[in-house]
Design a protein around this nucleic acid. Structure first.
Lengths: 358, 358
DNA sequence: CTGTTAGCGCATTCAC
DNA sequence: GTGAATGCGCTAACAG
């Protein structure tokens, strides 16, 4: 704390501004002065005070990351990737969780603004477009991830949910299954809606109707998963395959299936959404739709860094960052889902006579 | 950004200093002025600039959390708990990962200092005592978690590793097992050392020697776990129970056991360290030593907040925060481990004749 | 190329 | 009780 820019400047026998310029690699500095200043800084172990710099230059080297929680594998994977990449670029990450509560999200965004973050990555409710657009207008970079936001001007990185579910369903159908069950999230969530669409599209493509008796949708909880399995099995629909498109529910679905004595893949073929160690190690290992959490995080960071450069350039040009200008940023990116084949899928066994009558 | 304390002051018809005092609940302010200022602040949606406040008052409302990664369940659980608790107290969390690299840890601590954090929670290498002690001397609160640090003056929150391993081993012995295998971390790590000690102590207590053929220690990786299982099984030691005390290795141990056709608990009783969904859902569900990640996080936050109050008080008194003063903080806390009984332990089956001959 | 001058927004002396 | 003055540490005009 004791050694400030001034200390360094005095040690090097120059003024504070010269020292500042030298340390920032300004071109209008003689080689000798620069060397002298750098040496002084080194010797004194000078560390610039970020608060002061932030106050003066409106640049905090802080990036906010807003997400629901860290339990979900996709979320903590993204958090880790984003953190690492940003640290390499000299930014620190302020991480905060919202529990998917829009009110907390809103409050959080304000707090992040208070701290003068240079950018934010939001895995949000999709309801804070006005808040995040406010950031952009203030020159703060914004990237939405996983959940889109209707009126947001910021770029959005989404998973390939429709295609992933389509491909998974298609795979099951191509194995010969005709009664494919679906356990998913509520249609209020992007992922819930898109994955269900992928499922429906694939069925339709094969000339099959969407049988609502084969479909259960509910909240992102383990409990729902357990209930959904019972529900589906109790309905006696002749289901021979299941697409578990609700990640949290998987924790209820897997034990539910075991409890009901379902053998995988003999009695039921299974594909789960979002990969995690549990699914790799399950017996048999579960075929999954990998949504590419790491890639989502990487792309989000790339977009954020690019946007920060862009915003800085605009600012320099003195151009007003009006809405028309900001619209140039508005774009949706997709990280394609990947079907990872493991051991939980097989051709359906010959239906029993009673089933054949359907 | 436009509305500053000055704006509020003018709107309320007072000076900036009065506004500042009013907003901070200073006692020397008339009720009317306070009301007027508060109303103005409300109406103008005034948000204090943290950078300015930090620069002036040496208080950033930022707390640093340093840990290896977010993949490990204990780590991301702690991160989530710490984040939530601190957010409730008005602090934001700067999260950063080190990959257990002491050099990165060192650099990180400096960067956190640059940002003027009010406190740090370190799940570290134990090698940065001088750095963290430096924080304390500057009035920045420090709490070590999970890993102790020889010369650190800061309080440390540790898991009950010796006792947890002791209890687990004791449980296996009390079931009648005499050949209890052990797969653990390297002795360089606190947890590796302590858990092994618990294992040894329990054996000794039962008058059994530590048979090094039953013990494998290695790095915290999935790969090591897989190799360790093969190693142990190839040695044909007559092992009837196994304590898997290396969390990361569990991801290799479980599939390894399946691959070798070991039936749990018939052929082998198993206890794993650090609970996670995978172990709850494994077939059979695995008995574990729960290290209490949430509780570790909670306690760390409690200690951090308490320490911050204390440091502030000392500062006010103008007492020098010398080493003798700081030593009052130095104390080790333990969060007791919890043995969670599930279905992976049973009495050993009657040994085969060949085994009996040993 | 370099030094001088001015704040960024806030909290805290010191006066009254 | 309140206002005026000061400076936290730094960067960015503005002059030379």
């Amino acid at each position: 704390m004791a050694v400030t820019l001034r200390t360094v400047a005095e040690a090097a026998g120059v003024s504070a501004s010269t020292a500042s310029r030298a340390l920032h690699g300004s071109p209008l500095i003689s080689a000798e002065t620069r060397a002298a200043v750098e040496r002084a800084a080194q010797e004194l172990r000078y560390r610039p005070n970020r608060a002061a710099r932030s106050l003066r230059s409106k640049r905090s080297q802080l990036i906010g990351l807003v997400l629901n929680n860290l339990v979900n594998a996709s979320f903590h994977t993204i958090a880790e990737v984003v953190q690492r990449r940003l640290a390499d670029e000299g930014y620190q990450l302020i991480l905060s969780t919202t529990d998917a509560d829009p009110a907390r999200e809103e409050a959080l965004l304000l707090t992040l603004a208070d701290h003068g973050v240079d950018g934010i990555v939001v895995i949000g409710s999709g309801q804070s477009a006005s808040a995040t657009n406010g950031f952009l207008e203030e020159g703060v970079a914004v990237v939405n991830v996983i959940r889109s936001s209707r009126d947001s001007l910021a770029p959005t990185v989404l998973a390939g949910d429709r295609d992933g579910a389509y491909e998974a369903t298609e795979h099951l159908l191509s194995l010969g299954h005709r009664r494919v069950g679906y356990i998913g999230g509520l249609l209020g969530a992007d992922s819930g809606r898109e994955r269900f669409r992928g499922y429906s599209d694939a069925l339709r493509r094969h000339g099959l109707p969407v049988d609502e008796r084969l479909v259960v949708q509910g909240p992102f909880t383990q409990r729902f998963g357990a209930e959904a399995v019972d529900e589906l099995l109790d309905r006696r629909t002749g289901m021979t395959a299941l697409l578990a498109a609700n990640h949290e529910a998987v924790f209820g679905i897997l034990p539910g299936l075991v409890a009901r004595g379902m053998r995988i893949p003999d009695d039921l073929s299974l594909i789960c959404y979002e990969d995690m160690p549990l699914l790799q190690m399950w017996q048999p290992a579960v075929t999954v739709v990998d949504t590419g959490a790491s890639q989502l995080g990487e792309l989000a960071v790339d977009l954020l860094l690019g946007q920060m450069r862009e915003l800085r350039a605009w600012e320099k040009d003195g151009r007003p960052a009006g809405v028309e200008q900001l619209r140039k940023l508005t774009r949706t990116y997709r990280v394609g889902a990947q079907l990872v084949h493991r051991g939980s899928c097989a051709a359906p066994s010959t239906p029993s006579p009673s089933e054949r009558q359907r």
